[in-house]
Write a protein that binds this DNA or RNA. Structure first.
Lengths: 316, 316
DNA sequence: ACAGTCCAATACTTCTTATCGATTTCGCCA
DNA sequence: TGGCGAAATCGATAAGAAGTATTGGACTGT
C-alpha cells in the first residue's frame, strides 16, 4: 500500500500543508496542479485518510493531515541531514569528534561510546581531550570541543544532556584499615574520616552536590585533600591521608578495598553533553541513533528502584 | 534526484542491510532479485553513494550504508506509527490523554501544553487529573495516568522527563509587611520567617531539594505550616502564619506582594513526565514534535546564564 | 444577475520507469 | 572442470506519474 509512497509525494504534502493551496504548492515543486492534486487524492483514498478539507477558497488541514504533514517535514529534513552525513562519511570528510572527558569518567564508558560511534561512523576519528568539567564546558562554549562526557549534575537547559552511566559510590580505604572487616559502613560513623575529594574548583557543581548529599545524610564534610585524578585519590588513601568516595567500578590499586554505604544509594553518574546548537555533523545522529542502545544498557544495569530515589547523584 | 526515492526502496535497503544478501532480501520483499539489485544500484549511482561492497559471498555494509540503512529503518518505523496514529485521530479513537498535574504547576504551563496538544491532535481530549507528585507517580506506575506535569526533581532514569518551564522563586508576603518596602531580600535575614511550605509528604523530593538549597545558602529551614495548594499557601501568608517561597508568575491574591531574593537564582521548574514504556499512542509524538516548540520558548525566556548554574531547582 | 476570477477535480494522452524472466559473469569449492 | 551461489545485465511489458485541456463550484464586483 504505502510502499509506493515517494519522497516527492511527501514534498507535495508538506508544501500543500504550508501553502494550503494546491496550485501554489504545485508551483513550488514545479509540477502541474493536476498532478499534485491527483497524487494527494490518490494517497488519501489508498490509505483511507483525509489530509485536507477542500473548501472554496483553499484548503484546511485535518488533524490527521497535520500529523502526516509533520511526519513529512521531519522525514525530509532528516533525509537531507542523512545524505550530507553519508557523503561526508564516504569521503572521509567527517572532522574528528572532539570529545572532552574528565578523568573521573570511567574508561568503560568512554570505550562504550567509542564503540557505538565506530559502529555508525566507521573510520571517523574521535579526538579525546581530557580535562575537568570547568575546562570542558568552557571549551564547549568556545567551540573548541564538540561534546563531552562528564559527571552530573550539568545544567540541562544550557546543554543537551544524555545520562550514560550510573554506578554506586563506595568508600575506598586501605586493606589494613579497621573498617575493612565490616561488610558495609554507616556514613555517620566515618564521615569525619572521609577527607579526600575531587578538586572543588575543577568540579564545582559536583562538589556542591556532594555537600548537599552529606547534609541530607546529616553529616558535615571535611575537605582535607583535593585530587585531580582517580589515581591521585587512591594514592592519597594509600598514604593514609584519609578515606575517599569512589565509583564502585573503578579499578583498584593493590592495597586498597572498597565498602558500600549502608542505607544510602549514592551514585556516580555520567552523561554525554553537547551544546544544543550542534557544532558537529555527527551530533544529531548520536542523539538519534545512540539513544536506544544507551537506554537499554541503563535499564539492564539499574532496574526500577523505590518511588522517589535521588534525582542526580555524583562523583568519586 | 532523491525525489523519486520510494518507501519500497527504503525497505529494500533495510532488508538488504539486515540479510546482507540481495537474493534473500528480494524474497523478503516479494520482488525478483534483479529488481532489488537494480534499484539499489541505481540509487547508489544517482546519489554517488556506495551502500554495499559486493563480495563473492554476499554483501558488506559500508559506513555510509550503515547510516542510510539506519535512516531507512527509523523512517519506516516512524511511518507505521504515524499511520496508526493518523487513523486513530481521524476516527476519533484516540483515548483521552490522562494528564496528572500538581496544583503547584502554573496554569499557563498546562494551557500551553493543552494548546500544543490540540494543535497536533485536534479533537482529542485531555483528561486532567490533579494530584500531588506522589499520587501522580504512583498512578503513572499503575497505568492509571499516561503522563504528568510535575515540579522537578524527578528521577530521569525511571521516567522520561522533559523540562517545560523554569521561573524564579520569590518571597511572598503581606503588602503591609515591613519587608515589602525593600526591593529585594537576603535569604539569611528572612529565613527564620519563611515557615509556610508545601506539604513534605506530598512533595518529598521537592522538599528534599528545598532543604538542600537552604543548606547551601547557609540557613536552616523551619517548617511551621504545610499547604497542599498555592491558594492555601497564600491564605496562610495573609493570615500571618509566615512568609513563603512561591513561583514568581503565580497570580497573587490582593493584600500580598512578592520580592526577589538577592544573590540567589532559585527557580521553580516543571517538567513533562511519562513512563519510558509509552502507555498512550500519542506519547511518542509528543516527544518528537513538541520538543521544538518547548525548547524554543525555554531559550527565549532564559538566555544563557553563568557557567555552572544550579542544576535543578524547585517549588513555590 | 452576470462576467471574471480562483481553485480543485476529472479525462485522456504521453512518457517514465519499476518489474520480470532469462541470461551472463564471477568467484568458490568439490 | 563442472556445479553452485550470488550479483549484474538485457529486452519486453505493464504500472503509474506528469502533462494539457476542460469542467464545475463558489466568491467578487459591477
Amino acid at each position: 500500500m504505502s510502499d509506493s509512497l515517494t519522497f516527492r509525494l511527501l514534498k507535495y504534502i508538506k508544501e500543500s500543508a504550508e501553502t494550503l493551496n494546491f496550485t501554489r504548492a504545485a508551483e513550488r515543486v514545479f509540477v502541474a496542479q493536476s498532478s499534485l492534486s491527483h497524487q494527494i487524492g490518490k494517497f488519501e483514498s489508498n490509505l483511507d485518510l483525509t489530509l485536507f478539507e477542500r473548501t472554496q477558497n483553499g484548503l484546511r488541514l485535518t488533524a490527521a493531515g497535520r500529523m502526516i504533514a509533520a511526519y513529512a517535514e521531519n522525514t525530509l529534513k532528516d533525509w537531507e541531514q542523512t545524505l550530507i552525513m553519508a557523503h561526508a562519511v564516504q569521503r572521509h570528510q567527517v572532522p574528528p569528534l572532539r570529545l572532552g572527558f574528565s578523568s573521573f569518567v570511567h574508561a568503560k564508558v568512554i570505550e562504550k561510546f567509542h564503540e557505538t560511534y565506530d559502529g555508525m561512523f566507521t573510520g571517523c576519528a574521535i579526538q579525546l581531550i581530557s580535562g575537568d568539567p570547568v575546562f570542558c564546558l568552557q571549551h564547549l562554549d568556545a567551540g573548541l570541543l564538540d561534546c563531552a562526557i562528564l559527571p552530573l549534575p550539568i545544567d540541562a537547559n544550557l546543554y543537551s544532556v544524555q545520562p550514560l552511566s550510573r554506578t554506586p559510590l563506595v568508600v575506598c580505604m586501605r586493606t589494613d584499615d579497621v573498617l575493612a572487616e565490616r561488610a558495609q559502613l554507616n556514613i555517620r560513623e566515618i564521615a569525619a574520616r572521609i577527607t579526600v575529594f575531587r578538586d572543588p574548583e575543577q568540579y564545582p557543581s559536583a562538589h556542591a552536590r556532594l555537600i548537599e548529599m552529606f547534609t541530607e545524610a546529616g553529616v558535615t564534610l571535611h575537605v582535607a585533600c583535593s585530587a585531580r585524578t582517580p589515581a591521585e585519590i587512591q594514592w592519597m588513601v594509600r598514604e593514609r591521608y584519609g578515606l575517599a568516595l569512589i565509583d564502585q567500578l573503578l579499578p583498584l590499586e593493590p592495597g586498597l578495598v572498597t565498602r558500600p554505604l549502608a542505607g544510602l544509594s549514592w551514585t556516580a553518574d555520567t552523561a554525554f553533553i553537547h551544546l544544543r546548537k550542534a557544532g558537529h555533523v555527527a551530533l544529531p545522529f548520536i542523539e538519534r541513533f545512540f539513544e536506544e542502545s544507551w537506554s537499554e544498557s541503563r535499564k539492564k544495569k539499574h532496574p526500577s528502584k523505590g518511588e522517589h530515589p535521588e534525582q542526580l547523584q555524583l562523583l568519586a
